[in-house]
Design a protein around this nucleic acid. Structure first.
Lengths: 245, 245
DNA sequence: CGTTGTTTTGACACTAGTCAATGGGTGTGG
DNA sequence: CCACACCCATTGACTAGTGTCAAAACAACG
């Protein structure tokens, strides 16, 4: 949206505490800043990268939101996760050097590009950076575990409630309201993220509306009663022990 | 089982190509070997570590097999994964310094213990080691993605077939037979790994027996027709693109 | 040899998927 | 500025696949 190339500065970026620079010295952040490349903003539905593509860079969300997914041979997509500002995308590519999932933009969004070869060089120079990268990788694993539990043994209602609470928590960590936010993804995306049909998502939202727990206006969600929402998933709190995606 | 402490030697270990030493120079492996601690073998159902426990070491499976799981507040366990020889356990703890899941032994099993502080020191000295650790972390993320797809949008029959093929592939990578192996886990463990009840596991195995695709003798599985088994999951091959857990 | 835990099988209920029709928004072009 | 088309979301009807409950068979253990 900004036609003139925005200046990259991790030091002035509000997200730096959630992102790769966390825990680095000021001079280390300055070194990191140098390798960051600017990409033009992506439009809705535009691909950041595709599965099996050679991975030359990792990407951090600067603004907007993204969705990672895999398409099976039937052409049906499975949403693996949603990425909000400050989060790192492409970590699943470090193993084979190729992305093992695709990522597209849910809205007009921008990223910071981190060229892999330069990032690796920097990691050997700055142990704190390597340490933070390892932590982020490990966090992603924990987050995936939470997601597997959610997918594995919970009803559609619990999945829906957990999803809303998860978003609420992540938005509030970003400094936004925790009880009013806009979904940037379609019902279909939520559905195959949670392992249910999009009709089930619609129905579960309708139930929550009737119970006066939330209001929904298209993509706009308001949580009226956080405690009631939490009560739905009460018997399985594990899924909330982390702010995940 | 061996009363006198077994000598640790990654160099002579058949698993080294699947484990942390992969890609290291001989002298680097020798350095790695020094930090490895020997633990006595674990008996069936014995805990290697528990969720929320302080993580002081990572563990590599030396022999036998393990199961990672989380117990929710209702006391119901969700199995997150199974670990076979050569695989690294505890990676989800690198983020917060505490294990985010528990691990127990499925049979009499042994591990190589890698004290974290010494491993971290070594990683700064041996870039290849850091690189391999990062690769393993990334592989775990990819594996989790495959598992999320399996949990998310597949029928019990596809889940069962995928599970058997996955084990077959992993055993064959270890040099064992790919069409005859023993399950070390209970039906219940398979069930909550795949997000279905243990009765459903029993029923699906029965169906496969009737179709002459496998034979089952308690924990002993024989795959009679690999192609038919693969045909069950044909429309969604993605779940097999990796040898995962 | 009895106890305990695991596995199998059956009967039934119910959640959620599928198919289909309708409604509402957004955007494009006349 | 309006009309049409397209996509997304909602709702209903019906059905199939699984979960739950219960009982019994079987193996493993002391």
């Amino acid at each position: 949206m900004t036609p003139n190339p925005p200046k990259t500065s991790c030091l002035s970026c509000k997200l730096s505490d959630l992102c790769l620079p966390y825990g680095l010295q000021i001079n280390e952040v300055e070194t990191l800043e140098i390798i960051i490349k600017i990409k033009r903003p992506l439009q809705i539905d535009e691909l950041l990268y595709s599965k099996d593509e050679l991975c030359k860079s990792l990407y951090a969300v600067k603004s907007g939101s993204f969705r990672s997914f895999i398409m099976n041979s039937e052409g049906i997509e499975q949403t693996l996760g949603f990425y909000l500002p400050g989060e790192l995308m492409g970590l699943d590519a470090l193993f084979e050097g190729r992305f093992s999932s695709s990522v597209d933009a849910l809205e007009t969004s921008s990223v910071c590009e981190l060229p892999l070869t330069r990032l690796n060089e920097l990691c050997t120079e700055i142990p704190n950076l390597q340490y933070q990268l390892t932590r982020i990788l490990s966090k992603e694993i924990s987050a995936n575990h939470e997601q597997m539990i959610l997918l594995g043994q919970n009803s559609a209602k619990i999945k829906m409630a957990t999803f809303l609470l998860m978003l609420s928590k992540r938005y509030s960590a970003l400094g936004y309201s925790s009880n009013a936010f806009n979904l940037s993804m379609r019902r279909q995306d939520i559905g195959n993220y949670l392992g249910v049909s999009h009709e089930t998502i619609s129905r579960q939202l309708s139930v929550l509306i009737k119970e006066n727990i939330i209001t929904v206006n298209h993509r706009a969600i308001k949580i009226l009663d956080l405690d009631l929402l939490k009560a739905i998933i009460e018997p399985c709190q594990t899924a909330l022990s982390n702010d995940t995606h």
